[in-house]
Amino acid sequence: MRAATFHGPGDIRIEDRPRPELEAPTDAIVRVTHTAVCGSDLWFYRGESDREVGSPVGHEPMGVVEDVGDDVRSVEPGDRVLAPFRISCGYCEFCRKGLHTSCVNGDGWGGENGGGQGEYVRSTHADGTLVRVPDRHADDEDTLRALLPLTDVMGTGHHAAVSAGVEAGSTCVVVGDGAVGLCAVLAARRLGAERIVAVGHHEDRLAVAEEFGATETVAARGDDAIERVRELTYGGANHVVECVGASSSMNAAVAMARPGGTVGYVGVPHGVDDLDLYGMFGDNVALRGGVAPVRAYAEDLMADVLGGTLDPSPIFTHTVDLDGVPEGYRLMDDREAIKVLVKP
């Protein structure tokens, strides 16, 4: 099969690799029909995180089941499925309490299981990982585009809003205008926030935030952004969502929180070595979040997508085939695309 592989900063190649096969009775083989390039993929693409040269990349697969092991009960060949970015067993202590990303039997996509940006993947623990799409929606392309973000960014944005305690009638500030930040706006609206202030510095992305339900937008950085948000929220918001992961964005989120407020963070931390803990301490600001257990949210979010009340598909501003994956990385790295959809 063919798959995207990493060969160094800025160097993504499409190569022939062994097609994954069943290795355990709990495995399933999925033919990938839709996947995506993620903002977190850019960390290794830019050389800002380590990755093994030659390893397959990608972690947001959706496709059709080709084969299953003898113990798999939840899916069968021919089923359309989406796969969260983290493999989980579904039965360990952490899976049972909805923290699938801490699964003691967990795994990621890559290595010998195929990688998410390729033609096939092998899902270990298929019953605990794969989410079956109802047959009546399995071939509706518009629906599939709206479901694909549930593999990562929609679930991650939702985790941020939940972690921040967003509830009906509340005011929420979303820091970050990437795909996760935009999905967090959707999530805050879904949870009933009355005011949603989206903070970023790309006017086109903030326009999408408004389409998704942001009531106000702030196109500024640093102290200017903090000052404007505090003006809009009369001293800060009770619920702040951080979707970037940089030191500057984390400290800005803390500064935008009202005393006694909560920051829900899901941005992958990079260079966060000067977090303002004293400021958090002084104002009793809570920090909650982390890597999102998107499997825990998948069925609820899918029900809303299928019911027509949730559609994150506008985050996909470009579509490429498998050969176009390297260009997809470039488009996202250069901020020419919000998120790139891949159809192998």
Rank of each mutant, 00 (worst) to 15 (best):
H7P: 01
D11T: 11
I14F: 08
P20W: 06
A24P: 06
T26C: 08
T26N: 04
D27A: 12
T33L: 04
T35H: 03
A36V: 00
S40F: 13
S40I: 08
D50R: 12
E52W: 01
E60T: 01
V64N: 00
D67W: 01
E76S: 13
E76Y: 03
D79H: 03
G90M: 05
Y91M: 12
F94R: 05
C103I: 06
V104T: 15
G114V: 13
G116H: 11
G116P: 03
Q117P: 07
Q117A: 10
E119Q: 15
V121M: 09
A126P: 07
P134D: 09
H137M: 03
D139V: 06
L150E: 08
D152A: 02
S163A: 15
A164Q: 05
G165E: 01
V166C: 11
V166R: 02
A168L: 07
C172G: 04
V173L: 14
G176C: 02
A187W: 01
A188M: 01
A209E: 10
E216A: 12
E231L: 07
N238K: 09
E242G: 08
E242C: 08
V244N: 04
G245C: 12
A255T: 10
T262F: 10
H270V: 10
V272W: 05
D273T: 15
D274F: 02
N284Q: 14
A286S: 15
A286E: 14
R288N: 13
R288W: 07
G290S: 08
V291K: 02
A292L: 07
P293N: 09
E299S: 07
D300V: 03
D300Y: 01
D311G: 03
P314V: 00
T319C: 05
L322I: 06
G324K: 14
V325F: 10
R330E: 15
M332P: 14
M332A: 13
M332N: 15
D333V: 06
